[in-house]
Amino acid sequence: MTLRTTIAAVFRGRKLAALGAVWLCIITVAAIGAQFIAPFDPLEIDPIARLSEPGLPYLFGTDHFGRDTFSRAVYGARMALIIGIGSVLVALICGGLIGLLSAYFSTLGHFLMRIIDVLMAFPALLLALVLMTLLERSVINTVIVIGIVYATTTARIFFGMTLKLKNEVFIDAARCSGAGHGSILFRHILPNLWSPLLVQASFIFAFAQLQAAALDFLGLGLPPEVASWGNMLAEEKIYITRAPWLLMFPGALIILSVFSMNLVGDAMRDSIDPRFKNDIAGI
């Protein structure tokens, strides 16, 4: 099946999910070309134009420093993409490997999954908060912390899926034809898990946005000077009564992006191997 027919199959009859995918493409374009799209420097302060209403030249108005909300929102898209992709990579690589190896080597797996179970007893945001207290507030640390939090669920999911595959006949066949552990794991088992992995990635991406915004809001996420949607909300929350639109734009951007990613994930989940459908922890 070519990429084109796969995409067509995922979005057939799902107009909303297709719209979501379009929105995510727009976000990606904004993130890559932020310096060309944003009319102002996101950090440039204009004291005269503090808290100005949406209009011209400030499309989305300005914040209490007089910074252009639209430009900050465009740069926020870049940060959203970095947080999303970064956490997904950390979660999938750590969690995926732990799950895969634990299911395959059962002695090691028993021990590792026990630890994972303990970590899952820590509510996600709480675990992130605690880990953040150990670390400096920075982009990379935020990515790592959110990634680790979702690595636990990912490990559990991969553990379950690998167990299902491990006893399939084609794995026995590979083993009989002399394939080693590495070859079985990465050439026979893993390729069957690519599509559930992609679905899981989309849900982690969505959750990571909400998690990062919550960390920013609590003052334990990205450094305050970074233009992210979460920071925009955190900094301007006390001005909500004076300038209600200030929180409207970044909020709407987060909601639209998370919603779009959830829609796309949901659409993809319906088209993957039904054996794995109930393993994925999405919305």
Binding site: L210, F217, L233, K237, L247, I254, I255, V258, N262
Partner: peptide
């Protein structure tokens, strides 16, 4: 799904 995509604190503030 839309409701689950809203940041809790943003909803609370509004």
């Amino acid at each position: 799904m839309l409701l689950a995509s809203i940041p809790t604190f943003w909803l609370g503030l509004y």
